[in-house]
Amino acid sequence: MAVTRPIASRRQVLSGLAAVPLAFAFLPQLAEASASAVEAEIKKLFGDKAIGSGKIKLDAPQIAENGLVVPVTVEVESPMTDADYVKAIHVFADENPLPGVVSYRFTPASGKAVVSFRMRLARTQHVVCLAEMSNGTVHMTKSEVKVTIGGCGG
């Protein structure tokens, strides 16, 4: 009996420890209700492929006064030769009514993988950008944009 008692108490301690991170795990999900919609889109494109970081420079304002017109520039590091180039860039927004923003498909003739465009943001959220390279690797980056006036009308 004297042996089992300490084991039981260790179990209690362990289950208590496990409950703490579990309780906090729900908080970020509440804050980003449709981050999972972006994840679903990424899964549709790349399945369970490992996604790396780096290579992408996502230039978006930290604060956008007007969510209707948010200027964004995406720059992917690549020599853009026939052997090594950026195949595609995909942009998503995790708190818009629809997650997709734009996809660009490049060829080595582009010279460099840089695009600028203007997008709508319904509210403060992350802009997520993925780059697909010709060797099959995928890179991702995201940037938070605070929106003063949302851009989805109605």
């Binding site: 009514p97 629809l98 734009v102 996809s103 660009y104 600028s116 465009f117």
Partner: peptide
């Protein structure tokens, strides 16, 4: 396209702003 050969393609979603502006590069 350049001389009949496409070099950049893109798909746009409703999140693209009105009067769409874009810039890109070509060698």
């Amino acid at each position: 396209s350049f001389n009949g050969k496409p070099f950049l393609e893109s798909d746009w979603h409703p999140a693209i702003s009105a009067n769409p502006y874009q810039s890109f590069f070509f060698k």
